[in-house]
Simulated assay, not measured.
Amino acid sequence: MNTDYHFPISSSTTCSCTVKTARDEKVGKIKDLMIDSETGDVVYAVLAVDEGFLNLGTKLLALPWQAFHFHTQQKDVIIVNVEKEKLEAAPGFDSDNWPKGPQHEFIDDLHTYYGFERRRITAL
């Protein structure tokens, strides 16, 4: 996540912000943050899409953390840097069927889909 005011933010604050596109279209809210248990990094955010946006109903989308940044004038808005068409075609899941299985493969796939490079911690 990119910010113009670099400071830590709580997960509860992040989840209470409104997510909008760069074109100021309200998308929804971040439902949860998925944290890598080895590094402590947020690897992806689970975006709960508002009913009516993209005609997706209550679909959940996993997006790389790098796909988001905070609005510089509105502290309660997070901008998703993904085109609406990409979100429309994105593979999603419902609240009863969260991603399972090899998580590193899933995380690599979602970074590839959205066009963000996955940051990896290298040993010293």
Rank of each mutant, 00 (worst) to 15 (best):
V77Q: 00
W98P: 04
H71S: 14
L54R: 00
K59H: 01
K59T: 13
E83H: 00
F68I: 01
L87E: 00
A67H: 06
L60D: 04
E83Q: 01
E105M: 13
K84H: 02
L63N: 02
F68D: 01
A90G: 13
A90C: 15
Q66H: 12
A89G: 06
W98K: 13
K86N: 03
G52D: 06
F53K: 11
F106Q: 00
V82N: 09
K86D: 00
Q66K: 14
V82L: 03
V80F: 00
V80K: 08
L87S: 03
Q103I: 12
D76Y: 12
T58Y: 11
Q73W: 14
V77R: 03
A90R: 13
K59V: 07
V82G: 04
H71W: 06
N97P: 07
D96R: 10
F70P: 05
F70G: 02
N81R: 14
V80I: 12
D96P: 01
A89W: 07
H69Y: 15
K75Y: 04
K86M: 09
Q103D: 11
E105A: 15
F106H: 02
G101N: 11
E105Y: 14
P64C: 01
H71V: 03
E85Y: 05
V77N: 04
L87Q: 07
E88S: 12
L60N: 14
K59M: 11
D96N: 08
Q103H: 14
E88C: 07
H104G: 13
K100Y: 10
H104E: 15
W65C: 05
S95W: 02
P102K: 15
H71L: 10
N55F: 13
G57E: 03
L63E: 02
K84C: 05
N55I: 07
A90F: 12
Q103R: 14
A90T: 13
D76A: 13
T58I: 06
P99I: 07
Q74T: 04
L63V: 08
K84E: 03
P102S: 14
E85P: 02
I78A: 13
H71Y: 11
G52E: 07
L54H: 04
E88M: 11
L63F: 02
F106R: 05
G92E: 05
E88A: 15
I79G: 04
W98D: 04
E83K: 08
G92V: 07
V77G: 05
N81F: 04
P91A: 12
D94I: 00
E83M: 04
F106K: 09
L54E: 01
T58W: 05
N55W: 11
K86W: 07
K86A: 09
S95R: 12
E83T: 08
P99W: 01
D94G: 02
P91F: 12
L54S: 08
F68T: 01
K59I: 08
G52L: 03
W65H: 11
A62R: 05
L60S: 01
G52R: 00
A89E: 11
H71R: 04
L61H: 03
A89Y: 09
N55P: 10
F106T: 06
D96C: 01
E85H: 11
N55L: 15
L63H: 03
V82F: 07
P102G: 04
L61G: 09
H104S: 15
A67I: 10
G92W: 11
F70H: 01
I78F: 09
A67W: 02
E88D: 09
Q74C: 08
A67D: 03
G92T: 08
